[in-house]
Design a protein around this nucleic acid. Sequence first.
DNA 1: TCTACTCGCGAACACTGTTCGTGTCAAGTA
DNA 2: TACTTGACACGAACAGTGTTCGCGAGTAGA
Lengths: 266, 266
Amino acid sequence: MPSSSAVVETSALHGSAVPAPPWRTRRKAPAARQPLSAEAVIETALRLVDRDGLDALSMRRVAQDLGTGPASLYAYFANKDELLEQLLDRVVGEIPLPVLDASGDWAAVVKRSCWDSRAVFLAHRDLVKVARANIPVGPNSLRYTEAMLAVLRGAGIPDKVAAWGMDQMSLVIVADAVETSIHVSHGRQSEADAAPYLAQIRDYYASLPVDRFPNLVAMAPAMTEGSGDERFAFAIDLMVDGLARHATGRVVESSRVSGFVGGGGK
Amino acid sequence: MPSSSAVVETSALHGSAVPAPPWRTRRKAPAARQPLSAEAVIETALRLVDRDGLDALSMRRVAQDLGTGPASLYAYFANKDELLEQLLDRVVGEIPLPVLDASGDWAAVVKRSCWDSRAVFLAHRDLVKVARANIPVGPNSLRYTEAMLAVLRGAGIPDKVAAWGMDQMSLVIVADAVETSIHVSHGRQSEADAAPYLAQIRDYYASLPVDRFPNLVAMAPAMTEGSGDERFAFAIDLMVDGLARHATGRVVESSRVSGFVGGGGK
DNA sequence: TCTACTCGCGAACACTGTTCGTGTCAAGTA
DNA sequence: TACTTGACACGAACAGTGTTCGCGAGTAGA
C-alpha cells in the first residue's frame, strides 16, 4: 500500500444484482451527478477503515475524502448503519465461495472457508465489529450463504442442522475476528507483540490466592497458552466435527438427553 | 430519589476482595464525601442501562441521576470503558456459580450454567455488548471462571482443552446474548413479536431467483425455524458435547487430520 | 431564453466523552 | 479556637459525533 488512492480497486460485487430487500429504506433516488455514487462512498469508507480503523469512520471524514459535506452522503444511505451494512457486504464479497471438490472431504472445505472468512475480516481491521445480529441480506452475503448451504446439504446434513450450524459458524467466526481485531487495535498484532500482555495475565492468575483460586492458579499457563490461530483451529474443529456427527447419523441426540430447553428463560 | 433508590439493593459482590489487577488505573483516591462512591455510580449506571438500554448510558446521564456533573465520575473511573468493565463484572456476580453435584453429570452442570449466564445477561438488556475481548479480570468474573474450571477439570478434561473450551463457551454465550439483545431492542422480545420479522426474512429467501439460490430457496423455512432458546440449546449442546469427547478420550484429534493451522493468517 | 424544479451541501442542532481550573470544604497544625 | 493547607467536587468548555433543514445552484423542459 504505497499511500496512493489506487489501493484495492478490485470490485467485490460479482454477478448480476439481487432484488433489494423490501424493507431497505432509501431516502432519495441516486443522483445523476458525476463525482458521487454509492460505490464511490463505499470504496472511500473502506479505504478509511483500512487505514485508520472503524472508530475513525465518521460521515464527516468520508465526505471530506470525497470533497463534499456530510449531508451529501444521506442521498445514498439512510444513515450510518446502512452504509456500514453495505460496507460489510462489500467485504464479504472478497471471501472465496466454498466449493465441494473431488476429494469429497466436505469438512475440510468448510473449515478452509472458515479460515478464508477470518482472513478477509482481519484484512480489514475492525470492520467485523459491524457484523452483528441483523441477518445479512446483502448480495454477497446471500451468495456466500448459498454456497455454504450447498456444501452442507451435499454432505447429507439435515436442513435444520445445516441452517443452524451455518448460523453458529458465522457467529463464532465473527466473534473470534472481533476479539482478534481488538487485540490488534491494542497493538498486539503478532504473537510476539501479544506475549508481554499474555505474560501479564498469566502472572496475575498465578498470583491469586491459591486457597480460593486453586484451579486458576494451576492453570495460569494453560489459560494463556496458544496463539490466536491455534485457538481458532480448536473452535472451528470443535464445531465442524460436531456437525459431522449430525451428518453421519452418529449424533446422540444430546439435546434430548440433557434437555432443559428454555430453562434459561425469564 | 424519592421512590427509586430502593431498587435492587442486593449487592452482587461476594466474599472478600481480590487483589486489583496492577494495570487497572485509578486516577484519584476515592473521595470521602457522602453521596458519591464507585458502588453508587455503578448501581445508578446499572439502573439506567436496565431502564433505557446501553446506548442511553452516558456519563452525563449517570451524573445527572446522582445529582452532580459528569466530571465527578472521573474521580472513580479513569474513563467510560472502566465504568462499563466494572458494571459488567457487577452483573457477572449475579450468575450462580456452577457446582458439580452428586449426580456426577458434569455436562449437565456446564450446560445449566450456560443457560444461567444467558438469563442474567438478558436480564440486563444489551449490557452484554460491552463483554468483548478484554480478558475479564474483575473479582466476580474470576470467581466464575474458577468455578467453571473446577467443574471441567473435575470431569477429567485436559487443562488446555478446559481453558480453551471455557473461552469458547463465554464467546458463544456472549455472542448469542448480544444477538438476542439486539432483537429485543428492535422490539422482538417474544417469539410472537419476532414472528413477523422472521416471516419477512423467510419470504424474502423464498422469493430469490431459484436458479441461482436453489438451496436458500429450498431452506427458507429451515433458516428461520426455531426459537432463540432452541438455537441456543443447539449451540451449547454442540460445544459441550464436543468437549465431552475430549474428556472421555474419544476425540479423534481432528485438528491434526485436517490440519492447516495458521492457514488463514496473512 | 425563461421558467420550474430537483438535488447538493453549508450550517446548525443536540448530543457525546473528556479535561481544565476554580471554588469550597474538611482535616491538621499552632 | 483560629489559621493554613491541601484535596476534592464539579461548572464550563473543547473537540468531536450523527443527522436535519433549507438555501442556492444547475439542469431539464417549454
